Amino acid sequence: MIAEFGGDAEVGQKIGSIAQQTNPVLLLRFGAATHNAHRIHYDPEYARIEGLDSPVVMAQLQGALFFRAAALFAGEPAAVVSVGWRNRAPAYVGCELVVTGVVREISDGLITLDLEERAADGTLCAVGEAVVIANMKPVC
């Protein structure tokens, strides 16, 4: 079953996936909002000097995608207690990133999710986890 959390989560349950098509404008705007002006995110020549094939997606944007997946599952952004991730491979600007996950643990009113992010070609770009409050009523 793949769905948003409806109150009866089960260990092993898949969560709904989220996808984000990346592009230079998205990276420019996200970089401006987060004060991240590192050239590897927008300058192809500089990215190559740093050993990359082309500009890469910011790690913070990848974390934001993990947060979105957890919030979608919980049904309420305020239910997200924590999000953590580790980058495994570059996510190149222009790729579509897809975050998927499963319920790993349910304990003491909290649900722990195992999350992963892959590029459209199947490359595992990041792995992580999120903890959400079970059965949280909407804030607004």
Rank of each mutant, 00 (worst) to 15 (best):
M1P: 11
A3M: 11
E4N: 14
F5R: 11
A9Y: 03
E10H: 15
K14M: 12
K14Q: 15
I15D: 01
S17C: 10
Q21L: 11
L26I: 10
L28Y: 14
R29N: 13
A32T: 14
H35T: 10
H38N: 10
R39C: 05
H41F: 09
Y42V: 11
P44V: 07
P44C: 00
E45D: 14
Y46M: 00
Y46K: 08
Y46T: 07
Y46I: 00
A47W: 00
R48C: 13
I49H: 11
I49D: 13
L52W: 06
D53P: 08
S54M: 08
P55W: 00
V56R: 02
V57T: 10
A59I: 04
Q60D: 06
L61S: 01
Q62L: 05
G63V: 00
A64H: 03
L65S: 01
F66M: 10
A70H: 05
F73W: 08
F73D: 03
F73H: 04
A74V: 02
A74N: 05
E76H: 13
P77A: 11
A78V: 10
A78T: 08
A79Y: 07
A79D: 02
V80T: 01
V81I: 14
V81M: 06
G84M: 11
G84E: 14
W85E: 08
W85D: 00
W85K: 08
R86H: 14
R86E: 13
N87P: 13
A89H: 08
A89P: 07
P90S: 09
P90M: 04
Y92N: 00
V93H: 02
V99G: 01
V103Q: 02
R104A: 15
R104P: 05
R104W: 00
E105Q: 15
S107I: 12
G109N: 03
G109S: 04
L110N: 12
L113P: 05
D114S: 15
L115Q: 08
E117L: 15
R118Q: 06
A120R: 06
G122F: 07
V127H: 00
V127S: 04
V131S: 02
V131D: 09
V132M: 03
V132Y: 01
V132G: 05
N135I: 07
N135A: 11
N135Y: 10
P138E: 04
P138N: 12
C140H: 15
